[in-house]
């Protein structure tokens, strides 16, 4: 709050620095409170609706008249647990494989100098510009021939999510570039292999970016709908939560399933929320870390 420089209004001149600071802070905090209310209301509504047991359809009020766990218990008796498990498996496996691939890729491109390195990077940049949706139909055909659709959608989806992960190296390569090469060289002189340099020198220094990579790799499959629906169509056993729960929004279903749907939404949000809470301090660092030097 830079009030010390030439106050404009006469009112300000009479106020002390402290008073004007208080006023501007108050205004800013009021604004922030309003904004957070706007952002949080949908989530609060969903949580509250999921505890409403007096009716199962949409209603015109937010606070439930009767509270209870019925919707969560109902969830247990549907295919929800299967969908949830599918989603969890897909997201975890994808997170692990994709993180490994991305980090190896970034390390390679950051530290090694080989023929066609630049053209390769340019090629991947261009390839990344094609919208992935365009490939949906052909991917479906390929997966179908491999037998990885419908009931076997889980490995199929993992394959698809992981397949192009090497191209997402930009942020972490940028971060690796900021780590001085002399560290590598020192380690190499002491007899470390390339792999040891990555494990023992680079990765401990790049913890934020590792966390960031895991998080993004986890989030994409966790929330996917379009592709997951296309691959698992009409087969409950292969659906993820988003696709499965979408069925409850049918015209003749929503009256009976609305509050259960909210309960499902809350359960889906829990692991992501926990993950972010634990890892958020690394997250911001990770995203901006690579920006220092491209």
């Amino acid at each position: 709050m830079k009030n010390e420089t030439a106050p404009a209004g006469s009112l300000k001149r009479h106020m002390g620095l402290k008073a004007s600071n208080t006023i501007s802070n108050t205004i800013i905090y009021i604004l922030l409170v309003i904004m957070s209310i706007v952002w949080l209301i949908p989530f609060i509504c969903i949580v509250l609706q999921s505890f409403r047991v007096e009716s199962t359809w949409q209603v015109g009020y937010v606070i439930p008249k009767q509270w209870g766990w019925k919707n969560y218990i109902d969830l247990w008796h549907t295919d929800f647990k299967k969908w949830y498990l599918n989603t969890l498996i897909i997201a975890l496996v994808t997170a692990v494989i994709q993180t490994v691939i991305v980090l190896c890729m970034s390390y390679t491109l950051s530290r090694f100098r080989f023929k066609l390195r630049k053209p390769l990077m340019q090629f991947m940049l261009i390839l990344g510009m094609f919208p992935g949706m365009l490939t949906m139909i052909i991917l479906y055909r390929v997966l179908k021939d491999l037998g990885l659709t419908q009931a076997n959608a889980v490995p199929g989806l993992i394959l698809v999510y992981v397949a192009s992960s090497g191209m997402g190296y930009y942020v972490s390569k940028g971060f690796f570039d900021t780590i001085p090469k002399s560290l590598d060289e020192a380690a190499r002189v002491d007899g470390a292999t390339r792999a040891q340099v990555l494990y023992k020198i680079i990765l401990p220094l790049a913890k934020p970016i590792v966390i960031y990579t895991i998080l993004t790799a986890f989030m994409a499959p966790w929330g996917d709908f379009v592709f997951a629906r296309y691959i698992s169509f009409g087969t409950s056993a292969g659906m993820n939560v988003a696709v499965g729960m979408y069925n409850w929004l049918n015209l003749d279903q929503i009256g009976q399933c609305y509050t259960r749907f909210c309960a499902g939404g809350v359960i889906v949000a829990i692991p992501v929320t926990i993950l972010f809470m634990c890892l958020q301090k690394y997250y911001v660092e990770g995203v901006t870390g690579g920006a220092v030097k491209g």
Partner: peptide, 21 residues
């Protein structure tokens, strides 16, 4: 027996008739 809404049946069938119900 799979739960597929009547409203989506055509979209789902046309995706891939061979794999449909």
């Amino acid at each position: 027996v799979e739960a597929v809404g009547e409203g989506d049946a055509a979209t789902n069938m046309i995706t891939d008739v061979a794999a449909g119900g």
